[in-house]
Computed example of a mutant assay.
Amino acid sequence: MMRRFGEPPESGRTYTLRTGAYAILPVGDGLLLTHQEAPEPEVQLPGGGVDPGESPVQALIREVFEETGWRIARPTRLGAYRRFTYMPEYDLWAEKLCLIYMALPVVQYGDPIEPDHTALWMSIPEAAETLANTGDRDFVLRFASRNSVFQKRG
Rank of each mutant, 00 (worst) to 15 (best):
R71W: 11
L141S: 06
E67F: 08
F84L: 02
L60A: 11
S55E: 12
R142E: 06
T16H: 13
Y22L: 14
D91M: 01
A73W: 07
G20T: 11
Q36R: 10
V27P: 10
L97A: 11
P115H: 13
Q58W: 00
Q36G: 03
F5C: 02
A144L: 05
V140A: 14
E10L: 02
A103F: 08
T19Y: 02
T68E: 06
L92C: 09
L78G: 12
R13V: 00
P112F: 14
V50M: 03
G6A: 09
P41Y: 05
N133R: 10
R153Q: 10
R146H: 10
F139C: 09
N147D: 14
E63Q: 07
L92T: 14
S148W: 10
E67P: 06
I61G: 09
E37M: 11
R71G: 07
D136F: 00
E54L: 08
V50D: 02
N133S: 05
M2N: 13
R146G: 07
G79F: 03
R74T: 04
G20Q: 06
A127M: 01
P46A: 07
A103E: 02
M1K: 14
G135R: 02
S11H: 13
P8K: 00
G154P: 08
E54Y: 06
K96W: 05
I24H: 00
Q44F: 01
T134Y: 01
T76I: 13
P46R: 02
V149G: 02
A59S: 09
T68C: 04
Y109H: 09
E95W: 05
Y86W: 12
P105I: 13
P112Q: 11
V57D: 11
D116Q: 04
D116I: 00
I24K: 00
S148P: 01
L131S: 04
E10Y: 00
F143W: 04
P105M: 11
A23K: 04
M122C: 06
Y22A: 15
R18F: 10
F139Q: 07
R153G: 10
A21D: 06
Q58A: 14
W70P: 15
Y101T: 04
W70K: 11
G135K: 02
F139V: 10
